[in-house]
Design a protein around this nucleic acid. Structure first.
Lengths: 190, 190
DNA sequence: TTGATCATTAGACTGCCGTCCACTAACTAC
DNA sequence: GTAGTTAGTGGACGGCAGTCTAATGATCAA
């Protein structure tokens, strides 16, 4: 598939990377709400329309900018280590929480934005929410296979409980640290 | 205390009730985002400033309007029934979920708004979030006292897990029904 | 070269929230 | 009564996100 040369003026890739870089920097510096689109395009040196050619909203741009970083942070836990699933889950949560120390405020803003824009909610859910949910359910299922977790437990509900716990803390600006991760795991496997 | 006559022109109570009634109706009809302040004040027949004399933002007004309704819906579970705590918790969650069928979308919008306005977050947390969280922790503590729940479990963490589960479902537009309530309780007491 | 197609630019424009202002209305204290 | 204080009215205003337009630029196909 493809090999087809696209017709018309090609999109300027530098503009995209500049926009993402500026957006990520400004959002981390000032916070999502305080960064205006005008400020972003000015510092990136492009026109307003150029931004909206690639992303539907400010939230889409910031999501993509953060997403590239996040994938390097919170990758899947190494599957083949000698550790048990409980330790794997704990490490996975701890790594997520560490990343949230940097981008937690931005993520809060994106969750808020996703409640206000149905289209953005879809892509946010597909790119951010679902993948993480699936990692946890897979981990829990593996724990069941290994006999670490009773086969009678409902893995989907457990996953909702675990994810919900840190969403709840995040949105209520509670503490998200290794201690909380340990407690979550302890209650899950209790 | 009081008996002191306040000085100056007294606030028109009708304006407040009209604003709350109109806001609640419009928000339920059209959804929070689609209702503009201009529409609310026009239908309530008051000036813009009158609204902002009583509430800081649209979110504050809607919160209060919904809050009055919610208190009639999701009151504390009757403490002295013969039921066990597990059943109490289940009934409590089911009643919350029923109310969310009506105002769930509005609550989602308010949660979003609370992420974008620190002052509103404070009052939202104090009026809405904390009271419910305390009801659940109290219920869980009681379950420990009655021997229904192991005394080794961390009640605060469990409460975060339970609340988080339905926040997570709510914000991701998942299904919130009696079945989910039962599953939550089952996993909590597992 | 010429025409078609898509990207970029600068800027005007709409609709929104929340603020501000000048004026008027209602009430208390004296 | 009159002065002081607070609330309500109507409308202007500023700042924001996102849309739209007209002109220019870059690339491919014939």
């Amino acid at each position: 598939m493809s090999g087809k040369k696209p017709i018309g003026r090609p999109a300027n890739q530098d503009a995209s990377t500049a926009l993402k870089a500026v957006a990520l920097r400004l959002v981390r510096e000032l916070g999502y709400e305080k960064v205006s689109v005008s400020e972003i395009i000015e510092q990136a040196g492009v026109a307003r329309q150029t931004l909206y050619n690639r992303w539907n909203t400010k939230a889409d741009l910031v999501l993509e900018a953060v997403f590239e970083q996040t994938n390097t942070y919170a990758a899947e836990p190494s599957w083949d280590g000698a550790e048990d699933c409980r330790t794997l889950l704990e490490g996975f949560l701890i790594r997520i929480f560490e990343h949230l120390r940097i981008d937690g405020d931005t993520l809060r803003a994106l969750i808020a934005a996703s409640q206000q824009d149905a289209k953005f909610h879809k892509s946010f859910h597909a790119n951010f929410v679902l993948p993480r949910e699936e990692m946890i359910t897979a981990l829990l299922r593996r724990a069941q296979d290994h006999g670490e977790l009773s086969p009678g437990r409902n893995v989907e509900t457990l996953s909702a409980l675990i994810h919900g716990a840190f969403w709840y803390r995040l949105l209520n600006r509670g503490v998200l640290d290794a201690g909380f991760a340990k407690e979550i795991v302890a209650e899950t496997f209790a």
